[in-house]
Nucleic acid binder design. Structure first.
Lengths: 245, 245
DNA sequence: CGCAAATTTGAACGTAGTCAACAAGTGTGG
DNA sequence: CCACACTTGTTGACTACGTTCAAATTTGCG
């Protein structure tokens, strides 16, 4: 029984040793619930702590000075968050809960010690940073070079693949969990236009919607429309350093 | 005399030990020149090697299936490149030289060994990954939520701050080194519209242009127009693990 | 010097934004 | 349990920012 969500995610890619599991468990000793809408970290505040999301859905975002918001990333259970804020005096982004969530928090020295004691885990953290980076560049390309429809399609596919399900396999029907305004802030669109795009996808029989739940009908066509690549697949980790223990 | 560009960059933030300098020098033992326009790595090819850019200007980009291009990042001397490609079987992005360049290359095990032998350097690599990530999120917010003019302004400011100068201090006059098409592919605009925005910035006395060189006249106004933050400043690295040696 | 690439400009078009009004949910307190 | 307030979703009409297409001009380079 894994006591750490983060360990569970890492464990999907490598066989963790007991010592490694123990080191990761330390990061999730403390546990805390936060309510939907709560702001865990505010842009420009000092980022004193790191977090691991254990349950629920969160987002990171920035506010521009005309008041508009850009959602940078949706955060799922097992995600390590706040790393970018820890390296600055002032956090470059805000963190907020989109549903009721459970999180663990730990301080910077804990990460530091992990780097000294477990080089393989350090390398794995690098790997997950890079996955996150590539997902961001996919979104950059989407915002820079694809249509509104494609961006909304990509967001739906990404949610489908990442939202936790009872059985681990992504389910084609899932609760959206986002307002159309939030979808707009993630895709660089207005809520009004998101509504039109969802309708178009529905009319094209790519998706169906009812009671806040979305069903992906034609995930092939959707992926084609969206240029979507699942960046959590196709990893090559043969080069990782040996595990301690 | 620093034998490593990468060490020089890291050395601006921490005092490196002799052992650390030596470990970094190993990464840049081999040295190679590539011509302007050369493609160092192609999307979907295996990313066998890592690189450190020693001299010149490069870019990373992706091609979408409608043929359009999104430039993800400009690369400057001292940048460690190809990390995201090393974790996948197939590289998620291409790397190309925008000017004649000098690079060093090393293999994945070399990085792996660095993580084992020098946890502080591993943590510093994490730090630079995070800076890169934040720069990407700034650009994401720019593409999603700011005007064409603001995006071009931000690109000019970023080039001003990062282009190497004889004296280390950024110079307000510098060679652009990019075609308007490349600026467009970086900012999510067409070359035609980039031209109009450059003209507007010029008419507004924010910049001047002649013979391929740009002069920033009013960097305050430019930064305001662009929401620009220099992400290489304001770091907080007190938590780094102790240096080896 | 001559050619190809890059820049510049104008005109027409289209995607997405803005504004406004209404409908449908959702939650809260009386 | 219902009434009311507020948020969210939906639709239409109009607007505007940036694209597209085309052609002329300049620049850089072999």
């Amino acid at each position: 029984m894994p006591s750490s969500c983060f360990a569970e995610v890492l464990g999907e890619h490598v066989e963790l040793t007991t010592a490694e599991r123990h080191a990761l468990a330390v990061l999730e000793e403390r546990k805390r619930d936060i309510r939907r809408g709560a702001i865990l970290q505010r842009e420009n505040d000092p980022g004193r702590e790191l977090y691991i999301l254990r349950k629920g859905l969160m987002m990171s975002y920035v506010l521009l000075d005309d008041g508009s918001r850009q959602i940078l990333r949706f955060l799922f259970p097992g995600d390590l968050i706040g790393v970018s804020s820890m390296i600055y005096n002032e956090a470059p982004e805000s963190l907020a809960a989109l549903s009721d969530c459970t999180i663990s928090s730990f301080d910077k020295p804990a990460l530091s010690q992990l780097f000294v004691a477990h080089p393989r885990l350090a390398a794995l953290i690098l790997v997950f940073n890079q996955i996150e980076r590539v997902v961001l560049t996919d979104r950059l390309a989407a915002l820079g070079r694809t249509s509104a429809k494609a961006r909304v399609a990509a967001l739906i596919l990404d949610l489908r693949n990442r939202l936790p399900t009872p059985g681990k396999q992504p389910s084609d029907t899932f609760p959206l969990g986002l307002t159309q305004e939030e979808i707009g802030d993630a895709t660089g669109l207005t809520a009004v236009h998101v509504n039109r795009m969802l309708r178009q996808l529905e009319e094209g029989k790519l998706i169906a919607r009812e009671a806040g739940r979305v069903t992906v009908h034609d995930s092939r066509a959707l992926a084609r429309a969206a240029n979507y690549v699942n960046r959590y697949e196709g990893l090559e980790l043969g080069w990782l350093p040996p595990a301690r223990d």
